[in-house]
């Protein structure tokens, strides 16, 4: 009985982390033998927390997200995501072009096991959430880049996961659209109370969005430093506080990159 109570107590709401990475390492077979990509990453994401992973090329950011998403296994260490399979958003929208915007979301709901009659209203609600109500029947190619990413966000939210993983989702967008989507993401994050693990190489983006910024070094990826960001929302990319912290983090990031030039 005691154990049953224990597992019951480990209900999603009462778990103290949305993701727990303990001593995670990953290596791939490379041209010169095993290549270490991630080295001893230990990181907790609290429920409802917004964390950005920041790093230059070759820091294994995307590898790390793949591991957390369960698309790949770590070489050593362990990863827990108590809220179930995390949702994942990519740099490209990754929407299915043979389905309309709404049907893309309905498919995610269907794969989650939502009964048929509930799918349509739920998909409409999610489109409403990303301010695309009325775009249910639109084909993917009829949408602009920003709209596609919002549909992709709605589809990720359709998984109803407590953890949203984002792999540079706005990197391919123009600056104005990206800025708007930053606001949207902040709003949706606060409305849904989801935890977000957001990967980027854009320092200002990281500071503008996150409660906590984690800097990864490159080759192999290690956690170099962490900052907590105590700037009031709503934030703007031009805010002095955002700029100041960005300068500090950029300095550190440049230092990390410089090390690779010295042999």
């Amino acid at each position: 009985m005691a154990t049953t109570t224990l597992t019951k107590a480990e209900d999603r709401a009462t778990v103290e982390h949305a993701a727990r990475l303990s001593h995670v390492s990953k290596s791939f077979a490379g041209p010169t033998g095993q290549q270490l990509v991630l080295d001893d990453i230990t990181l907790d994401v609290a429920p409802g927390e917004f964390v950005t992973l920041l790093g230059a090329s070759g820091c294994g950011k995307s590898t790390l997200l793949n591991l957390v998403a369960g698309l790949d296994r770590p070489t050593s260490g362990s990863i827990e995501t108590p809220g179930g399979r995390p949702a994942l958003m990519f740099q490209e929208h990754a929407l299915f072009p043979w389905l309309t915007a709404g049907k893309n979301i309905e498919l995610a709901l269907r794969l989650r096991g939502v009964p048929k009659q509930e799918r349509r209203p739920e998909a409409e609600r999610l489109l409403e959430l990303v301010r695309l109500g009325g775009s249910f029947g639109k084909r993917v190619h009829e949408l602009s880049g920003g709209m596609r990413q919002r549909v992709a966000m709605a589809r990720a939210l359709a998984q109803d996961s407590r953890l949203l993983l984002m792999d540079e989702p706005f990197a391919a967008l123009d600056a104005i659209t990206r800025d708007v989507l930053h606001d949207e993401l902040t709003r949706i994050w606060r409305e849904t109370n989801a935890s977000v693990l957001f990967v980027t190489h854009n320092v200002r983006e990281a500071v503008r969005l996150a409660q906590r910024v984690v800097l990864l070094s490159s080759r192999p990826g290690r956690i170099a430093r962490e900052w907590s960001v105590d700037i009031e929302h709503p934030r703007r990319i031009e805010d002095t506080a955002v700029a100041e912290l960005s300068v500090e983090i950029t300095e550190q990031l440049r230092g990390e990159i410089r090390r690779h030039g010295q042999h």
Binding site: L132, E142, L143, G146, T177, V180
Partner: peptide
Amino acid sequence: TRTDDLAGLEAGLDALDAVQV
């Protein structure tokens, strides 16, 4: 007001970027 601003801004962007078929 900020939220309204954002909604308006977004609607504007969508209208400008929408692909005409």
